[in-house]
């Protein structure tokens, strides 16, 4: 499974173009406002690129040449947004299971809960969670949707030092254990260099 992404977007005078190829963890690095999140949104299907293509593991999700544009719900992206975006009207358990898919390769629920240390949070409401807890729930929710690839948007921002270390170690474990292609956005060079064997600057 690997990314083959080559997308571009025109916004008035400005343009965003990005090319990502390869498996494992790719870090998308650049200053704020460079359009890193827009690239993730194009891969996830939340915005349509003006040109280019998005392929993951050989399957085409978007292709400007043929007009193919799969809706987000059929792309199986495990998207962890910069803000956790937990559903405020659902408890942690219901949030985790929102996108849970059965079938081949489906992730084990109990295992994921243990991996992320979420067992004690299951009956809580999202607004009672700390930033780090919410981030972990968001990661768990994305993993349990049995994704084909992961999109992580600034997963370490707005966390204190201890939490950063915890989430960083978790991402390294996911990278090594799951074998999913991961696209991670950051503006922090240390973070980029520690996590990614491949760094794409934008």
């Amino acid at each position: 499974m690997s990314f083959d992404v080559d997308v571009g977007l025109r916004r008035g005078d400005a343009a965003i173009a990005c090319r990502i190829e390869g498996d494992g963890l790719t870090v998308l690095f650049g200053p704020s406002g460079a359009g890193k999140t827009s690239v993730l949104n194009m891969v996830a299907g939340l915005i349509s690129p003006d040109f280019g293509h998005v392929r993951v593991g050989g399957e085409t999700l978007f292709d400007a040449a043929t007009g193919l544009d799969l809706p987000p719900e059929r792309r199986r992206a495990g998207y962890v947004f910069q803000e956790a975006r937990l559903f405020p009207h659902k408890r942690v358990r219901a949030n985790l299971l929102y996108g849970w898919r059965h079938g081949a390769g489906a992730v084990d629920v109990d295992e994921t809960i243990a991996l992320l240390g979420l067992a004690a949070l299951l009956d809580r409401w999202p607004r009672t969670l700390s930033g780090g807890e919410a981030r972990r729930v968001a990661i768990g929710r994305a993993l349990l949707s049995n994704p084909r690839f992961l999109l992580l948007d600034e997963p370490l921002s707005s966390l204190d030092r201890a939490r950063r270390e915890e989430i960083m170690a978790l991402i390294e474990r996911l990278r090594d254990a799951l074998g999913l292609p991961i696209l991670l956005v950051t503006h922090d060079r240390d973070e980029a260099e520690r996590l990614g064997k491949r760094i794409v600057e934008i």
Binding site: L46, P72, F87, P88, Y98
Partner: peptide
């Protein structure tokens, strides 16, 4: 918040 609807879509909800 429409960003919550986007989150639902990426989680497989039509």
């Amino acid at each position: 918040d429409r960003r919550l609807e986007q989150a639902a879509r990426t989680l497989g909800a039509g």
